[in-house]
């Protein structure tokens, strides 16, 4: 079995299984925890829990005006690599083929030049995020292995993907195999580390929106 066969076959299959079961387990074990009923009297005129959950999600998409100094760079850079990753994962023709194999639905891809550009921008943005994490005194203190390892398994697929598309650094088949293996690493790590925030963000923002919304606070 060649490296590419291994990557395309058992590696990605196992990774997908760990990813799905892991995320499911994290969610079930989390949402199955006891939930204390809020017995305080709801403020008269407070929006419904559903509206407050949506509101909580939307309001935290951006730092409110007037809060004062926060790092605009970090916020914008965060959006750059998140959107960049989304464009690459869901816009690249080869990725769409892979996703169609999984879900049975496909959609038209973006030109490779745009994907390459998105890849370069995303990589630069991720490197900027790492440099900031490693140099900013606050981030240095609060960063753990989880943060750096999560960065690594997010960045490697972008880097290896760009190399494979550009045929740089080795035979295409090896580059492609390394790319798929790096994605497998990301999928396996996802449920155990902070990448889970991609799922949890919907839970926490909604819960804060609900608990403050019933008080009549838009937070």
């Amino acid at each position: 079995m060649s490296l590419l066969d291994f990557a395309r076959g058992p590696a990605i299959t196992v990774a997908l299984a760990v990813f799905c079961l892991g995320v499911l387990w994290r969610l079930i074990s989390l949402l199955g925890l006891p939930r204390a009923k809020d017995r305080s009297m709801r403020r008269a005129g407070a929006s419904s829990d559903f509206a407050n959950a949506i509101g909580g999600f939307v309001r935290h998409l951006w730092v409110p005006k007037g809060i004062g100094l926060t790092s605009r760079f970090a916020m914008i850079n965060g959006y750059v690599f998140h959107l960049g990753l989304a464009v690459i994962v869901f816009g690249f023709a080869q990725h769409i083929l892979f996703l169609r194999g999984l879900f049975g639905v496909g959609w038209p891809g973006l030109p490779t030049s745009i994907i390459t550009l998105a890849g370069v921008v995303t990589l630069a943005s991720l490197i900027a995020a790492l440099v900031r994490r490693a140099t900013n005194p606050v981030l240095k203190l609060i960063s753990t292995f989880n943060d750096y390892f999560s960065w690594l398994v997010t960045t490697l697929p972008v880097l290896t993907g760009l190399l494979a598309v550009a045929h740089l650094g080795g035979p295409y088949e090896t580059l492609l195999a390394l790319h798929i293996l790096s994605v497998a690493a990301l999928l396996i790590w996802f449920p155990f580390g902070k990448l889970m925030h991609a799922v949890l963000v919907f839970v926490t923002r909604a819960e804060t929106g609900i608990s403050y919304g019933r008080r009549g606070v838009k937070i």
Binding site: L31, L33, T70, A74, T144, K194
Partner: peptide, 22 residues
Amino acid sequence: QTEEHLVSYLEACVHCGQCADA
């Protein structure tokens, strides 16, 4: 104190540090 909302909060922090300035 393993109530669901509390645990979600603990699991969700991405260590971005934005809270420092607030």
